[in-house]
Amino acid sequence: MNGSDIRNIYCIGRNYRLHALELGNEVPDEPLVFTKPTHAIAPMNGNVIELPGDVGEVHFELEIVLRIGRAYEPGMDADLCVDGMTLGLDLTLRDVQSKLKAKGQPWLAAKGFKGSAPLGNWLPYPGAAALAEKEFVLVRSGSEAQRGNARDMLFGVSELIRYVGERYGLGAGDILYTGTPAGVAALKDEDRLLAIWGDDVVGSCSVKLV
């Protein structure tokens, strides 16, 4: 699946308690859902991703991303909806987001800019229970920046799929960013990023701030 095959991009905010707290946000009592346009998709295949460098800090947020292969139907086993997984970056213009939040305005300018949704290589989906058997890691320019595990999600995969599917709809071709653990920070020009699932690198890219 490439960017042209993806229909809807759903993202979950504040799904790891420590990440919510590190940004001074309240821990939600139900999933916080936002979207990105499909033009935000970018590969992580050793390429260079150009990002805005003149509007404040660009933060990295590494996340487990699920690919929907079958439309959600009420009451179904949520695992049956998913046919692939990878790691992806929910890139965020943090200064822009802070200004939007202060005004009570939508996050699109901070979350939906071109290149804000880099994706690694798709892998077979092992099931919600097996996701917790491996950790995911973001290495930035040779140093570990983030480490997470699906078991630390406030809202697990099944709950997220039911919530999004019942309220917004989930169909084949949709993808779901499931939230980021603590450790987010600003990217620097020429940063080299590796997205690691267990022992395997599933995506890599370099950053160019323009």
Score class of each variant (00 low, 15 high):
105 Q>E: 15
107 W>F: 10
109 A>F: 09
110 A>E: 14
111 K>P: 04
111 K>L: 12
114 K>Y: 14
115 G>V: 06
115 G>C: 10
115 G>A: 07
115 G>D: 02
116 S>P: 04
119 L>S: 06
121 N>W: 09
121 N>K: 15
123 L>D: 06
123 L>M: 15
123 L>P: 11
124 P>I: 15
126 P>I: 12
127 G>S: 10
130 A>H: 08
132 A>P: 09
137 V>L: 11
138 L>Y: 02
139 V>C: 04
140 R>Q: 14
141 S>V: 07
142 G>Q: 08
144 E>P: 04
147 R>T: 00
147 R>H: 03
147 R>Y: 02
148 G>K: 04
149 N>F: 12
156 G>T: 02
156 G>C: 07
161 I>M: 03
162 R>C: 06
162 R>F: 00
164 V>M: 12
165 G>P: 07
166 E>S: 11
166 E>T: 04
168 Y>P: 02
169 G>D: 05
169 G>E: 05
170 L>E: 13
170 L>G: 07
171 G>T: 10
172 A>C: 11
174 D>Q: 13
177 Y>R: 04
178 T>L: 07
179 G>M: 00
180 T>R: 10
180 T>D: 03
182 A>Q: 13
182 A>M: 08
182 A>W: 08
187 L>F: 12
189 D>Q: 09
195 A>M: 15
196 I>G: 01
196 I>N: 01
197 W>F: 09
198 G>R: 02
199 D>G: 12
201 V>K: 03
201 V>H: 03
201 V>N: 01
203 G>L: 03
